[in-house]
Simulated scan of single mutants.
Amino acid sequence: MAKKQVDEMSFLDHLEELRWHLVKAVASIVIAATLAFIFKDFIVGIIMAPKHMDFPTYVALCEMSTYFGMDMSFCAKELPFQIEVRSVGGQFSAHIWTSIYAGLVIAFPYVIYQLWSFISPGLQDNERRSSRGFILIASMLFFLGVAFGYYVITPLSLNFLTNYEFAEEVSNAFDLSSYNSIVRSSSLAAGFVFELPIVIYFLTKVGLVTPHVLRKYRKYALIVVLILSAIITPPDIASQVIVAIPILVLYQVSIYISAIVIRNQKRKTKRA
């Protein structure tokens, strides 16, 4: 029934439907951003935590470095930099934008729900049943990616970049927007990268990707992953491997998901 109703909708009706879903998604982000703006101290505490050496990642890496006799920079008392603001409205602007990005993270499940609400009426009943856990899985992958970016990529990047010395006469005094950018980009980028299995699922559904293609180009994907790891992490082998491993696991999971989709499509064709 839902499929029939979708077929009867005109192009303008689809646009109107999409518009309302987008309005609801944006409204959820605004509401979440408002809450983040109000509870500033809590959000600031999260943003500033990787700056301090009692951050869990630094503690764990310090213990590992001590055990294996590796680089001891993770065991320092503090990171060698200060955060400054060089514009009159810098702190207020940082408060606004931090709240917006925090609102996006908080409201992500509802944004995905609105996206799914727009797409699902065009699916067959069995397709909707098989994709019932889409919102939960997509949200879990996103939050897992954000956590990975926050607890792994951010501290690795900060430790390397703040300890790197171009000249002794140059001291590290970073602008607040620059610091926020590292935390934000590391967390959000990892969050969206972890959505790879979801993307592959839909690309397989529409016939743009197959398990054979994913396996065929696996070695090229490995090169891309290593390049991506080199871009978003400090230029040391250990950090790149730490970041590359979960991405490679996601790629392998994506192959498995693609294979399941193809198998279900073949079963459906045989029944027809």
Rank of each mutant, 00 (worst) to 15 (best):
A2I: 07
K4F: 04
S10M: 08
V23D: 09
A25K: 06
A32H: 09
A32W: 04
T34N: 01
L35C: 14
A36M: 07
A36P: 08
F37S: 02
F39N: 05
I43S: 01
I47F: 13
D54R: 02
T57Q: 03
V59C: 00
L61Q: 11
E63A: 07
S65T: 09
S65C: 09
S73G: 01
K77W: 02
G89Y: 05
Q91D: 12
I96V: 14
T98Q: 04
I100T: 08
I100E: 07
I100N: 05
Y101V: 09
Y101A: 01
A102P: 00
G103C: 02
P109Q: 05
Q114T: 08
S117I: 05
F118N: 08
D125C: 02
R129F: 02
R132I: 08
G133H: 06
F134C: 11
S139M: 00
S139V: 08
F142L: 13
L144E: 01
G149P: 01
V152P: 01
I153H: 04
P155T: 03
L158C: 13
T162M: 12
L176N: 12
N180D: 09
S181W: 11
S181N: 15
I182K: 03
R184W: 04
S187P: 00
L188M: 15
A190Q: 01
V193K: 04
E195V: 03
I198E: 10
L214T: 05
R215P: 01
L222A: 13
V225G: 02
I227L: 15
I231Q: 12
I232Y: 14
P234E: 07
D236R: 01
Q240V: 10
V241E: 09
A244N: 09
I245V: 15
I257H: 06
S258I: 00
I260E: 08
I262R: 06
Q265W: 03
Q265M: 08
K270Q: 12
